[in-house]
Simulated scan of single mutants.
Amino acid sequence: MAPTFSAPPVSSSRNRARERADRAERTHLLLTEIDDATDAEKDQLIAQLIDVNMPVAESIAARYRRRGIPDEDLEQVAYLALVRVAHNYDHARGHDFLSYAVPSIRGEVRRYFRDQGWMVRPPRGIQEMQGRIAAVESELSTRLGHPPSADELAEEFDEPVSDVEEAMAANGCFTPTSLDQVPSSDTSTIADQLGEPDTGIDAAEARVVLTPVVRRLTERERKILDMRFFAQCTQQEIADEIGVTQMQVSRLLSSLLRRLRTELESGAATPAEDSR
Results as ranks from 00 to 15, higher is better:
residue 259 R to D: 09
residue 24 A to E: 15
residue 145 G to L: 06
residue 166 E to Y: 03
residue 128 E to R: 01
residue 82 L to R: 01
residue 116 Q to M: 15
residue 4 T to P: 04
residue 230 F to L: 14
residue 92 A to V: 12
residue 57 A to P: 00
residue 179 L to R: 06
residue 268 A to N: 14
residue 221 E to I: 01
residue 96 D to T: 10
residue 68 G to R: 01
residue 101 A to E: 04
residue 189 T to F: 07
residue 128 E to H: 04
residue 121 R to I: 08
residue 92 A to S: 12
residue 215 R to M: 10
residue 172 G to F: 10
residue 218 T to N: 06
residue 140 L to M: 15
residue 134 A to E: 05
residue 235 Q to V: 10
residue 147 P to C: 09
residue 243 G to L: 06
residue 43 D to C: 05
residue 38 T to V: 08
residue 129 M to N: 02
residue 17 A to G: 09
residue 244 V to I: 13
residue 246 Q to R: 14
residue 271 P to V: 07
residue 274 D to W: 09
residue 20 R to H: 14
residue 157 F to K: 00
residue 189 T to G: 09
residue 246 Q to L: 09
residue 201 I to Q: 12
residue 92 A to M: 09
residue 198 D to Y: 08
residue 234 T to M: 12
residue 258 R to A: 15
residue 224 I to V: 15
residue 144 L to R: 05
residue 10 V to F: 10
residue 73 D to V: 04
residue 69 I to S: 02
residue 21 A to N: 13
residue 46 I to R: 10
residue 23 R to E: 11
residue 123 P to Y: 00
residue 99 S to N: 12
residue 210 L to F: 09
residue 10 V to A: 11
residue 211 T to Y: 08
residue 41 E to D: 14
residue 154 A to D: 02
residue 61 A to F: 04
residue 100 Y to G: 03
residue 151 D to F: 09
residue 76 Q to R: 05
residue 77 V to N: 01
residue 90 D to F: 10
